[in-house]
Design a protein around this nucleic acid. Sequence first.
DNA 1: CATGTATATGCGTATAGATGTATATATTGG
DNA 2: CCAATATATACATCTATACGCATATACATG
Lengths: 106, 106
Amino acid sequence: MDTQIFHALADPARLRIVEAMRTGEHAVNDIVERMDIHQSGVSRHLRILAEAGIVQMRPDGQRRLYSLRPEAFDRLEAWVQGYRRHWEARLDRFGAALETHKDKKP
Amino acid sequence: MDTQIFHALADPARLRIVEAMRTGEHAVNDIVERMDIHQSGVSRHLRILAEAGIVQMRPDGQRRLYSLRPEAFDRLEAWVQGYRRHWEARLDRFGAALETHKDKKP
DNA sequence: CATGTATATGCGTATAGATGTATATATTGG
DNA sequence: CCAATATATACATCTATACGCATATACATG
């Protein structure tokens, strides 16, 4: 796993952009209006998100429509699930190992 | 969703530490031996990972045993799945909307 | 072609973050 | 209590990066 996707999502402004794009395609100016940073900053953030594979761009006249790339989220989900599967396997083999992951019961 | 967990995983050294801890608890020096950074750096990285809720610490004599916290991965997985569910809902409603997420077929 | 609109980028600056060194704080054993 | 071991932290430094401003580029329209 590369850190690039985490780095891209680690900036508050970029995460806000990603959350805003849940609803579909957005032009750059649409995003600028929802944020409190300059248009140049939004463009730079979008470039970083694109380089990380999180967004894609489609030209539409003089505008550029950005949208999320599900593949990026698939990769992230697969990575996270690798850890879950690991723990589940351990729990299957050692019931008592629950103590490893839960707070002690009073 | 807060950026803290992404920020914690965005550093290559910290991600290596997390990956190394897949196999269970590790003392600080165990991790230092596997990395090419100084012990002070490892301690700092572990603090950041702990503050992000990714690792927990358990004293064992003069050593501190660190391990991963599955809850952090659960939260991350839930966040990612929020996006997947969103797209799946859209795909259910609009079959043609496949174009939104896949490269155009030749 | 000229003008307006939308987006990207070079530049300077300010701030955050990663690192090593040295030192402080536990904890153990004698 | 003293020495050794394990870990954390203060400090200085170096690098990365986020930001706004100004400007460049691309497209549309008259």
